[in-house]
């Protein structure tokens, strides 16, 4: 029994989800190899080798994997699958994209977005937008799993594990990369931030999101948004917190002008402390908030920035 974890990285930066996913995989109790696929992976593979619990790092360094397209990634993982009983990746858009393809090619079911490991074949995962937690047992010989990284802590460091090259090259004719459009931000990444401040429909327009900037700077916070704010075009979609956006679990989550629809709560209700600022005292967000302030956000936000 051995576990293969596929590392999550982006533009030369190792994502914190990798370390959290390795922590989740460690709970299975088997030796862990980590596969990292992409281009120019020298420094990144050394970083992976330092994560506690990693037995060895497998590096597939080739231009073919530069954008981690599902078709090539699935073939690559499949070529290594024989040696492993568990194949695990974080439930980021990259992991969600290629992993079910791997599962189908192996003819096994996938267990999506686990939040807890009960034993090597039994897992807990949220269903119905987090309104229920299912405990499921995989009956397949091989377990293919995606992990909700926000439910696990970062792994500690260890002495460097050995690094091996993987020379499989799978260049699929089925798809090709055309372009990327990255959203630039100086702030911490949403899923990794310890403080998140999010705006909703109550912000009224995109310009008003600047009211959150000063507060975010003082708290070292990432800025998020509800689906309503994204759908109204106030902010780009990669800021969306919710069932269909990003799942966050920071120490402090400040919801500003957000009513608290099921779909939004599914993305943030595991935050340690929740603060809600809303002028509607009946907004459902107050039912989950540790501290609520019933007030007009346009009065309160400048005061909050001053007070910090």
């Amino acid at each position: 029994m051995k576990t293969l974890v596929i590392a999550e990285h982006d533009n030369g930066v190792l994502k914190p989800e990798t370390s959290k996913t390795i922590n989740a995989a460690a709970k299975l109790g088997f030796p862990i190899d980590v596969l990292i696929a992409g281009e120019n992976l020298g420094v990144l593979s050394e970083e992976v080798a330092l994560i506690n619990g990693v037995a060895s790092v497998l590096v597939a360094d080739n231009a073919v994997y530069a954008h981690q397209l599902a078709e090539s990634m699935a073939d690559l993982v499949l070529s290594l699958a024989d040696s492993y009983s568990h194949i695990v990746v974080s439930a980021t858009t990259t992991g969600k994209n290629f992993m079910p393809r791997v599962a189908a090619l192996l003819d096994v079911a996938q267990i999506s977005e686990i939040i807890d490991v009960v034993d090597a074949e039994t897992f807990k995962r949220p269903i119905y937008a987090g309104n229920a937690i299912a405990t499921v047992k995989s009956l397949d010989s091989k377990k293919v799993i995606t992990v909700r990284a926000s439910s696990f802590d970062l792994q500690t460091e260890q002495a460097s594990a050995p690094i091996k090259a993987v020379n499989t090259v799978s260049d699929s004719a089925l798809s090709s990369f055309v372009s990327d459009e990255q959203t630039k931000s100086e702030r911490p990444e949403l899923t990794a931030a310890t403080v998140v401040i999010s705006g909703g429909r109550g912000m009224q327009n995109g310009e008003n999101f600047s009211l959150l900037h000063g507060i975010a700077d003082k708290l070292g916070a990432a800025i998020g948004a509800s689906r309503a704010a994204v759908d109204a075009g106030f902010v780009p979609n990669d800021m969306q917190v919710g069932q269909t956006g990003k799942i966050v679990a920071p120490n402090l989550y400040i919801a500003v002008g957000i009513s608290g629809a099921i779909q939004h709560l599914a993305g943030m209700k595991d935050s340690k402390v929740i603060v809600a600022i809303n002028k509607d005292p009946d907004a459902p967000i107050f039912q989950v908030a540790d501290y609520g302030l019933v007030a007009d956000l346009f009065d309160v936000l400048p005061q909050l920035e001053q007070a910090l």
Binding site: A109, T122, G130, A132, A134, V136, D140, I274, D290, L293
Partner: peptide, 28 residues
Amino acid sequence: TARVQLISVEEPAKRTAGIIVEDVAQLV
């Protein structure tokens, strides 16, 4: 044939409403 067995379904841990603060100073 089922590949995944549903063992149980539970309510998630409940979050309860906290307190309503008076103003920004009290919140901070």
